[in-house]
Each structure stands twice: as C-alpha cells, then as structure tokens.
C-alpha cells in the first residue's frame, strides 16, 4: 500500500500548486531580487540574535535560578564570562560622537559614539522578532477560530463572527497601543498589542474558505468514511488552505515591522534596545544639524526590508491565489 502510494506521487509530480507557483516566481527578476534582500536581512537578524544572546547569557547578572544555563553556555561556547566587555552595539565612545561614515564605522556613529551599522543589525533582530512572534500569536488564533466558525456554523459561527467583528471595529493603532500600555511597556507589549489585534483578517478569510470546502467532494468522502470533525478540519481541509496562511504571513510581517517602528518611536514599544523606531527618534532632531547618517541609513534599511517583503508578498499572492487580489489589498 505504502509503496504504490509513493510511486503514484513521484509519477504525478511537477504540476502541484507549489511547484507551479515556484516556477512562476523564479521567472520574475524583481521577485528574485526581493527574495535575496529578505535572505540577507534574515541572516543579519540571526547574526544579531547570536551576538545579543551571547552577551545576555555570558555577561548579564543572571538570577540564581538561571545560573546553570549560564554555566552550560560557558562550557559549550568555551568562553569566559565576559562581564564588562560590551558588544559593539552597546559600547559607547564619547570621543567618537557623531562620526560620519568611514572605514572604521561603516555608517557612522550616533550621539554616544555607538556604531550605527551594528545598531541597525540589532534593529533587524528586533524587527524580525516582532514579525515572527506576532505571527505566532495571531496566525493560530485566526486559523483555529476561522476553521471552527466555518466548519461548525450555527452558534459557534455566530459567536466567532461577533468576536471578530467587534475586534474589527476597534481603532487599530490606538487599540494596539492601549493593549501595549496595559501589558506594560517593552517588547512584550508590542507582541501582544500587534498579535492580539491582527488575526481578524485571516480569521475571516479562513472561515469563508472552510465554508466552501465543507461542501466539496473530498470532505464528504472523509465524512462518509467516518472521520471526526477535527480530523477533517485539521488533516483534510487545513493543508489545502496553507497557502492562505503563507500569503497572510508575508503581508503581516512588513505591517508588524512598521507598527513596531511607530510604537517604539512614540516611546510605547521597546525601551532601551536599539530598535529602528528608537534610532529614528534619537536621530530625528540631529538631522537639522546636518547629521544625516543615522536617520538616513535607518530609514533606508526599513524601506528596503518592507519593500522587499511587500513585493514578495504580492508576487506570492498572485502566484498562489490570484482571486485574492481585490480582497487581500484592503487590510
């Protein structure tokens, strides 16, 4: 049985939705370029997290219950405890304040003599953290609620539709900021604020699609074979809708990054880490004095990341599900 299954799959291969989409995406140079940009920034974010966590684990004054973690890390990294040796993005050098870009400081230094380039790398880490973690909050909520509403209908549907319509009414930025304020300032507030408000669009989309798929032959066949509702939903229907989740992720990621920048700029988001928003806020007034590099490079990098994600998201959407072109735009 298993053997026939695999042979069938290899014979049929080459024309699936994913392969087809991949082929179409590869042909578009703009898409390939955006993908390259996204890869570069992802690598920068990974590098940034390694630097950041290495410092946090080896240096910070850890609470007693986390000491074993520190000891383990020291043994694995074969490193000494690096107390006092700050990484480049924190290290201040007051003799090097406001240095224009040079070979030593690729993108210049800021008002405390910290290297702008390394701070931007850390900003990339924070942006990616925000994009990923808010998605990890919002996507499960949207998918599960949308599937339940679409499949079970009746009372369940009524309640879930009511819930997401209510959330949809809330004035977006203010609502996010209010949640962040309640959750205390800092990154946690940003995650919760964006994560708990941005599931509505995906939920509505999933509900509509599940509603359609429920009528299709393969679902009826599964039901006739005695599959339970959750098995049908999450093993039969959901894999057919995964492309919607991926499209949604590619749209929400740049939006979350933009919101985080605005929140941190306003002083509601990240507090003392080099978030892009904080960097803009610090550098804003210096622009008047001709110190352009911190603000210039920060805004340029935000534009590059967001633009690459937007272009990639558009292309993914066109390749995977052209019908979404109108409805997907609005949110």
């Amino acid at each position: 049985m298993n053997v026939t299954n695999t042979t069938l799959r290899t014979e049929r291969g080459g024309n699936s939705l994913w392969k087809d989409a991949f082929r179409r995406l590869r042909r578009n140079p703009l898409v390939v370029l955006s993908f390259g940009v996204v890869v570069v920034f992802t690598l920068a974010a990974i590098y940034g997290s390694v630097v950041h966590w290495r410092y946090r684990i080896l240096d910070a004054e850890m609470p007693a219950r986390l000491q074993p973690v520190k000891q383990l890390a020291i043994r694995i990294l074969r490193a000494e405890s690096v107390r006092g040796q700050e990484p480049v993005y924190i290290r201040q050098d007051l003799d090097q304040r406001y240095q224009p870009p040079s070979r030593r400081h690729l993108m210049g230094t800021d008002g405390l003599g910290r290297d702008v380039f390394h701070r931007l790398v850390q900003g990339t880490r924070i942006a990616f953290q925000v994009g990923v973690i808010t998605s990890l909050i919002a996507i499960p909520i949207g998918v599960i609620l949308g599937c339940l509403a679409g499949y079970f209908g009746k009372r369940v549907d009524d309640v879930i539709v009511w819930l997401y319509s209510t959330f949809d009414c809330m004035p977006s930025l203010l609502f996010i900021i209010a949640i962040a304020m309640i959750a205390r300032k800092g990154l946690m507030g940003v995650y919760l604020g964006i994560g708990l408000t941005s599931w509505v669009h995906l939920c509505r989309l999933m509900r509509g699609e599940v509603l359609k798929h429920r009528q299709l032959g393969y679902v009826q066949a599964a039901r006739a074979l005695g599959a339970g509702p959750f098995r049908i939903l999450f093993i039969h229907i959901l894999p057919n809708l995964m492309h919607l989740v991926i499209i949604n992720f590619s749209i929400r990621f740049p939006a979350a990054v933009q919101t985080e920048v605005i929140m941190s700029f306003l002083g509601i988001g990240v507090q003392d880490e080099p978030s892009w928003g904080i960097m803009i806020s610090n550098a804003r007034l210096r622009l008047w004095e001709g110190i352009w590099w911190e603000l210039g490079f920060t805004t340029l990098i935000i534009l590059a990341v967001v633009l690459a994600f937007n272009l990639l998201g558009d292309a993914l959407r066109d390749a995977l599900d052209p019908r979404l072109r109108v409805t997907g735009d609005h949110d």
């Binding site: 740049p254 933009q258 920048v261 605005i262 700029f265 928003g277 803009i280 804003r284 622009l287 008047w288 603000l295 805004t299 935000i302 534009l303 967001v306 633009l307 937007n310 272009l311 558009d314």
Partner: peptide, 22 residues
Amino acid sequence: SVVLMSVNYLVWIIFGQYFLGY
C-alpha cells in the same frame, strides 16, 4: 504605489518637515 506603501509614515513626516519646511 508599492514603494509609497513601504515608506514608513514617520519617514514622510520627518523628511517632509526637514526638506519642505526647514
């Protein structure tokens, strides 16, 4: 339109104030 959408709101304001205003 994609490029316009990708520019952060803050950037419009800050550079608008700097170039057009100042």
